[in-house]
Amino acid sequence: MNYRALCTDIDGTLLNSHRELSERTIQAIQKLDKQIPVILASSRMPAAMRHLQQQLGILHHPLICFNGGYVLDYSDGSDTPAIVDTIQIPAQLCAAIVAMAQNTAIHVSLYANDDWHAPRMDEWTEKEQRVTKVKARIADLPPILDSWHVAGTGAHKVMCMGPEDEIFEMAAQLEAQYADQIHIYRSKSTYLEIAPKAISKASALERVLTQHYSLDLSQVVAFGDNYNDIEMLRAAGLGIAVGNAREEVKAAADEVTLKSVEDGVAVAIEKYFL
């Protein structure tokens, strides 16, 4: 099969043990035919992905942010992208999630467009800033939620971080009450990421490929490691799980490459594209 596009998750898939791009990964992607779109698909916000695009030399390529809830097109070369798609969690539901975390040790952050709203500078905010290289906007959340309610908008992602037992309990409560409205995804034992039910990396990737490149999913190689990558790996022409992926992800993939810390994505790119 002559694959003509590449899409990859970031954390746990593309980055090394320092949460950075390795030199081998950078070189492999920079050696690709310039006609091949390289699309990053992540739960991250745009600002936490643009510096990676810059390192890879793909600043004009699309971004799939917030697991498909916010899709951006940078093809005109400017820093102000065209919005391909935007799907948010309504303000009222965001407020219910924030209220659920009251009287617990859980930190709740709200993400909308390219803004990260955190209620305080604590260990969770500091950790995320180090990992994503993005600064949070520290502010009380209720006024933000009120303004979203008036504007009829909401969050592209809600992230809850806290003790494992409280995160587990909150996930169970959200599943029981709102499973028909939101995706509830435990990216780590202490992290809970919440997104609109209507979105996925797979649907966002299909839209980008068909609208902007006249390609279909059978022509793309996709990489991932976690539950939110399964649908994308199944839909792709070639779905590849990294060696450190969850077993369910490996089972959904067509192939398993080396671990992310062993440059598994670069190894597969060299095998299929170079």
Rank of each mutant, 00 (worst) to 15 (best):
Q129K: 10
Q129Y: 04
V131H: 07
V131Y: 11
T132D: 10
K133G: 02
K133A: 11
K133N: 11
K133W: 03
K135A: 13
K135M: 14
K135I: 03
A136E: 06
A136N: 06
R137L: 13
I138H: 08
I138G: 08
D140W: 02
D140G: 03
D140A: 14
P142M: 10
P143D: 08
P143S: 10
P143C: 05
I144L: 15
I144G: 04
I144R: 06
I144P: 02
I144A: 07
L145N: 05
L145Y: 08
D146A: 14
D146N: 12
D146K: 14
D146Y: 07
S147Y: 04
S147C: 03
W148C: 10
W148Y: 15
W148T: 08
W148L: 13
W148R: 05
H149L: 12
G152L: 07
G152V: 09
T153V: 12
G154T: 12
G154D: 11
A155V: 10
A155R: 08
A155M: 13
H156R: 03
H156F: 02
K157L: 08
K157C: 07
V158P: 02
V158N: 04
V158I: 15
M159G: 00
M159Y: 00
C160F: 03
C160D: 03
M161F: 04
G162S: 04
G162D: 06
P163A: 09
P163H: 06
D165W: 02
D165G: 00
D165I: 09
E166P: 02
I167W: 00
F168I: 04
F168S: 13
F168D: 13
E169K: 15
E169V: 10
A171Y: 00
Q173P: 00
Q173H: 12
L174K: 01
L174H: 01
L174E: 01
L174M: 15
L174V: 04
L174T: 02
E175P: 00
E175M: 05
E175H: 09
E175C: 03
A176W: 02
A176Y: 06
Y178H: 15
Y178P: 06
Y178S: 05
A179C: 10
A179Y: 05
A179S: 15
D180Q: 13
D180L: 03
Q181H: 14
I182P: 01
I182H: 01
H183R: 09
H183N: 14
H183T: 08
H183G: 03
H183W: 12
I184D: 00
I184T: 09
Y185F: 12
Y185L: 15
R186W: 01
R186E: 05
R186V: 02
S187T: 15
S187W: 07
K188I: 00
S189F: 07
T190S: 12
T190M: 05
T190F: 13
Y191L: 13
Y191F: 15
Y191R: 03
Y191N: 11
L192H: 04
L192Q: 04
L192Y: 05
L192S: 05
L192D: 06
E193L: 02
E193A: 03
E193S: 02
I194Y: 02
I194T: 03
I194M: 09
A195Q: 07
A195H: 14
